[in-house]
Design a binder for these strands. Structure first.
Lengths: 214, 214
DNA sequence: TGCACCCTAAGTATTCCTACTCATAACAAT
DNA sequence: ATTGTTATGAGTAGGAATACTTAGGGTGCA
């Protein structure tokens, strides 16, 4: 009997998941919770075979839970279950060593199949992002380019985060105790690295990607 | 036995909902689907007592389903079940005559209680937006102010939509065959009506609220 | 030591947007 | 017929961001 733990901040969604997994012979849902810290605590203690984690959770997000799991060398395999079909989030999940990446729009069969794959040591990825996987493979084969955000330095990331908080260059300068000109230079470098052009490009990008900024 | 229909594009979430409602004596889930058109078709034919509708759905969103239900004078009472806790969406739902507004983060008890209330002809609103209800009540009592977006004229809305598409004033002018100055005037009026100030205010607002723009 | 990279800063020019005021024509409401 | 609203456009001013270039100081690496 394989032990499965579920963490998601939507009780109804959790209920549905539990229902699906419990119905499958060989699977047992050994626990559930709605936030990252409780999830980590449970996983560290009880060491389930698989943890189904939402990425967006209160207190501690799924990424950070996985990081901790890695640090503590826990045997639990992590399956991300998320609404985000964006490439960067998927990429980050893979970097951190997730065993699977499921979209919440998945049908019930996908989930069972996913868990079976992961238990066999395989990876599993939701069909909807397979398009992206194709391009990713191409990238890996051809030139191994880094994707956007990873090209940014730490200062640039810091500034991009402040931009995502709708701060002006002036405000950012005051917060970081540096010159406005320096901030403008960083903005410029960020735009260049991300291939962003025009006055209406950087701010929307920052807003759309703020959840990716470490 | 009260007949309940469920429409939500997330199969797992639907599963959870069905589980919760079926477990309650007196409730019967008579159907489910994952898009608005199928939902409307079912509701028009079978006339369930209550329809639990997601707002974001493929093919036809929850708002439009409710509009059609109103047009066709169907007896089915609509409960919105959504992730959006924003005031404007809530307001729009109420305008259209929704009987309840539940957030997807609701716990299972809330849902049962909600359905019971609606069956008794009462309204029900998720606790998390009760804060807003308070201010809404105050508004209704004091001056009956319109909220934000409703104050915009149709041209202003059109322009705000284009701003949300990251178009510059120059581009908007070219699209609408009007002068840049006119566009800038409209931007200005929008900012005034929405009480937005500074260079980093209008664009983020447009992005955050584009789903509200008719 | 030298090279590469980063953070810092400033110069210059251009574009974009905000924040006002003013004006005219179209249209609806009373 | 007057008033109000809307859409259109322009004038002026200034703030903000982009798009370049140049340059000193620091760190780390080969």
């Amino acid at each position: 009997m394989k032990k499965i733990f579920i963490a998601d901040d939507h009780p109804i969604f959790r209920k549905g998941l539990i229902e699906i997994i419990s119905a499958e012979p060989g699977f047992e849902v050994v626990g559930e919770c709605g936030d990252g810290i409780t999830a980590l605590k449970y996983i560290a203690e009880k060491k389930p075979d698989i943890a189904l984690l939402d990425i967006q959770m209160p207190k501690m997000n799924g990424f950070d839970v996985l990081k901790k799991i890695n640090e503590l060398n826990l045997p639990t395999k992590v399956v991300f279950l998320t609404m985000h079909s964006e490439e960067d989030i998927f990429e980050k999940a893979m970097e951190l060593g997730a065993k699977a990446y499921l979209l919440k729009e998945s049908v019930t069969d996908d989930i069972v199949q996913c868990i079976n794959n992961v238990l066999q040591g395989k990876f599993y990825v939701s069909g909807s992002i397979s398009n992206y996987l194709f391009t990713l493979n191409n990238k890996l084969k051809t030139g191994n380019e880094k994707s956007g955000l990873q090209k940014l330095t730490s200062t640039e990331t810091k500034i991009l985060k402040l931009i995502a908080e709708k701060k002006s260059s002036r405000e950012i300068a005051d917060i970081l105790y540096i010159s406005v000109r320096t901030v403008e230079n960083h903005r410029n470098n960020i735009c260049t690295k991300l291939d962003l052009h025009g006055a209406n490009a950087l701010l929307p990008f920052a807003l759309e990607n703020k959840h990716l900024l470490v």
